[in-house]
Amino acid sequence: MYAQMIKSTGEGVKSLDDMEPDERAFQERINAGGKIEPKDWMPEGYRKNLIRQIGQHAHSEIVGQLPEGNWITRAPTLERKAILLAKVQDEAGHGLYLYCAAETLGVTRDQLTRDLLSGKMKYSSIFNYPTLTWADMGAVGWLVDGAAIMNQVPLQRTSYGPYARAMVRICKEESFHQRQGFDIMMKMAKGTEAQRKMAQDALNRFWYPSLMMFGPSDAESVHSAQSMAWKIKMNSNDELRQKFVDQTAPQAEYLGLTIPDENLKFNEETGHYEFSEPDWDEFFDVLKGNGPCNTERLEDRNRAWNEGRWVREGLLAHAEKKRKTAIAAE
């Protein structure tokens, strides 16, 4: 997902009876479906967990601009170029709301940015895969945004108010992104032989990395159990992955494309698709920094930040001069 392997306290979920009065009131409010707002009391673990999660989500939006930005200058029509620009602009906007949501928890955007650039904080593994053909713009919208939506729709009900509200806005735009991705895939799948080949190739390359977005099974994870008790994680990774496969498999069939999994089949009894697990060794390699594009992505972000320093300093210096002039004039 856009936030993967987020660590919580690691201490397991406390029962209400083991909690001090503040914490108990906090947990009861969450259990009753109430929202926690920035000025409310909250356990330190909840605050830190959320900063990690919202920060990673924001970083994913920012780094996520790069694989799609890779095709803006090569988009095949003016309309596709405009749609892709609008989409990437939305992602930058999502990054902005999410950084703002994180700032309500007492961390600055600059601090989060420094942690991204140093590699201390992560972004979603999916953005470490390259976009090699125009069909990848379709696959990213259809599969990657499709997977992201699975997680983000329930997060509109998350317990932290600013995060939930950011997610409401984000979800509206993400569903448009997914539709435009599917639309590109449809054009490609119904197009010339070369286009069909590109579409199939994109599906082959993005299928398993998309399944990895949900993270490995967290049925046994103490971190996930705590996040779920706090309602900052609403469903297990396996549940969401299953939902994604159930939604996507018939769409692939409709497109006339083949999901690269020999074991994929619909189970009449369960009403769900059976499918193969992705290669989790590859996932952990990507998280460690050994994905196909980790180095380039961080290099690009670092270069942008370093080469932009003079701009940020220049604009700040000017604002300061204006402030001083205004004070002197009073």
Partner: peptide
């Protein structure tokens, strides 16, 4: 649009994409 994703600050990324759009 060549600036996509690599502007000096996030607000500029948004503004440049908006202008290009």
């Amino acid at each position: 649009s060549e600036w996509c994703g690599v502007a000096p600050v996030l607000e500029e990324d948004i503004a440049l994409a908006n202008t290009a759009l």
